[in-house]
């Protein structure tokens, strides 16, 4: 769905063929990752989500896995658009993703000054239960296998390990 004015690039040329190494969430994006500067309009957000889910389905991920990724993507994009980019909700959001049958990689970065994820209060505490805000990060952490932030706090990286596929002998989708 490479429609204007989103821009995209495939990083690293050759797709990752196999790897015994399992990069943690704060490493560089895997070779072959798709990189998109996404205009945060609903239609474009939905189109990229559908593209990612199609790639996951092609790679053999279950509907349960797609539900988890869809939710994490939606929450991370919403946080970047509404809370990142320092109030300029029309600024592009950088999305990088990579799918193999064993693992899904997602990195979302805004252009804001960042935030301290440790400072976000726990919405499940009794005193916060009636507070409408602050559940997106909780859901991302619950559904993803690994979650990491860069030091600045304007970039989140999520990894979902497909429980149907062992990581050894990983091949690109």
């Amino acid at each position: 769905m490479a429609s204007d004015p989103d821009t995209r690039d495939q990083q690293g040329g050759e797709a990752e063929r196999s790897s015994a190494r399992r990069p943690p969430a704060n490493d560089a994006a895997p070779p072959g990752s798709i990189c998109i500067d996404l205009q945060p309009e609903r239609q474009r957000i939905d189109a990229l989500r559908d593209e990612i889910v199609a790639a996951l389905t092609d790679a053999g991920y279950t509907e349960t896995a797609c539900f988890a990724v869809r939710l994490a993507y939606e929450e991370a994009i919403t946080n970047a658009r509404d809370h990142g980019n320092d109030g300029q909700s029309d600024l592009p959001i950088r999305v990088e993703y990579h799918v193999t049958p064993a693992r899904f990689f997602l990195r979302i970065a805004d252009q804001g000054h960042g935030f301290n994820p440790k400072a976000v209060s726990d919405p499940t505490l009794p005193e916060n239960l009636l507070n409408p805000a602050g559940r997106g990060l909780l859901l991302i952490r619950a559904y993803m296998s690994e979650v990491a932030f860069n030091d600045r706090g304007n970039e989140i990286t999520c990894i979902y390990k497909n429980p149907q596929q062992p990581l050894s002998g990983e091949r690109s989708a």
């Binding site: 539900f67 939710l71 939606e74 929450e75 919403t78 009636l130 507070n131 409408p132 559940r135 997106g136």
Partner: peptide
């Protein structure tokens, strides 16, 4: 079939 945390926020506001 799918919802986001924004729906939870709306439900809490309605509940309150």
């Amino acid at each position: 079939e799918h919802l986001s945390s924004a729906v939870l926020s709306a439900l809490i506001t309605i509940h309150n």
